[in-house]
């Protein structure tokens, strides 16, 4: 009986789908595929995606958003197939786990006729995506570097804690190094702390026992920065240096808002970019303005003056 009902429902559903073009406003299904919340930043990503999903569905009753999260590239490729075959999506918003392995699966979604928006990590082939929304990694490095130039000068010493060895890390690091080149700021050493609090703590402890004079720390990421701060506190050297992280974690933004000496500024690399991508994708169906193209978000410097607008106390990140 149940089965019969389901088949009947399915038949009615497909009949409606077939007759849909006749209706004034088509029902539109948008698939959103993002990595699962495995660390702080992706946690924020998931939160903002769910917020945007609720907001957009409430605002546009004819738009249905299907949100799926994947634990790895292989699962994400499966998710994409399911979005096409089961949900029959009209548009896809995807933050690829890795560029290479997902380029082909995304192309197949594109070939099914869907509108494709790629977020943050670009595909390794041009011409697949309709919209590209991303944070700006070189900009993050450059803005951070410029802040260091305003605070430090010839003969001052800094240490750098890098992320996980990846393209993102290289882009940030190289842009930073180019910006401070020729200023006389002395980079004592740089080590990978894997965007991880514990690693940040341990690497910084070792930097502190190795270098008696450190004027600034570029941690590049807020998780690392929080580990660094604990290490600096433990060594009792908080008056000696300042720490700059990156991304816009709420705890760090809060410290910036309170005018912390130790962590005076932050540079934004917002997980909320997924919401931007979803907005643009919905606009493709609802707005009369063209939306295709590339959207590179800024990486503004967050200072005590403007910190409030980047503070999301309910977000997990």
């Amino acid at each position: 009986m149940q089965l019969l009902k389901k088949i009947a429902a399915l038949a009615v559903g497909s009949a409606m789908a077939l007759s849909a073009p006749a209706m004034a406003q088509d029902n539109i299904t948008i698939g959103v595929s993002i990595p699962a919340a495995t660390h702080g930043w992706t946690g924020g990503l998931n939160w903002h995606a769910a917020q945007a999903q609720a907001r957009l569905q409430a605002a546009h009753p004819h738009i249905n958003i299907v949100l799926v999260t994947a634990d790895g590239p292989a699962q994400q490729a499966n998710d994409l197939e399911d979005l096409v075959s089961i949900h029959n999506i009209d548009a896809l918003v995807v933050l690829p786990f890795e560029s290479e392995p997902l380029t082909d699966p995304v192309r197949r979604v594109k070939e099914s006729g869907a509108f494709v928006t790629v977020v943050d990590r670009g595909l390794s082939q041009d011409g697949i995506q309709d919209v590209y929304v991303a944070g700006n990694n070189p900009e993050l490095g450059r803005i951070s570097g410029e802040y260091f130039l305003t605070r430090l000068g010839d003969g001052d010493n800094i240490v750098i804690l890098r992320g996980i060895p990846t393209v993102i890390d290289d882009e940030r690091f190289n842009a930073f190094m180019e910006t401070i080149e020729g200023s006389g700021i002395n980079v004592l050493d740089h080590k990978h702390a894997n965007w991880n609090r514990d690693d940040g703590f341990e690497v910084m402890q070792d930097f502190l026992s190795r270098f008696p004079d450190i004027d600034g720390v570029w941690a590049q990421d807020d998780d690392i920065a929080l580990g660094v701060i604990e290490a600096v506190r433990q060594a009792g050297r908080t008056d000696e240096m300042f720490v700059v992280g990156g991304a816009g974690m709420k705890e760090v933004i809060q410290m910036v808002m309170q005018g912390s000496e130790l962590i005076p500024v932050n540079v934004l690399y917002p997980p909320a970019m997924i919401a931007t991508a979803m907005d643009v994708t919905v606009a493709h169906f609802t707005s009369n303005g063209p939306v295709t193209g590339e959207y590179i978000l800024g990486a503004p410097l967050i200072t005590p003056e403007n910190a409030e607008q980047y503070y999301f106390p309910d977000s997990p990140f």
């Binding site: 699962a36 919340a37 495995t38 702080g40 924020g44 705890e251 997990p316």
Partner: peptide, 8 residues
């Protein structure tokens, strides 16, 4: 991950 809501 669930308790932390994906965050910290």
């Amino acid at each position: 991950t669930y308790f932390a809501d994906g965050g910290t």
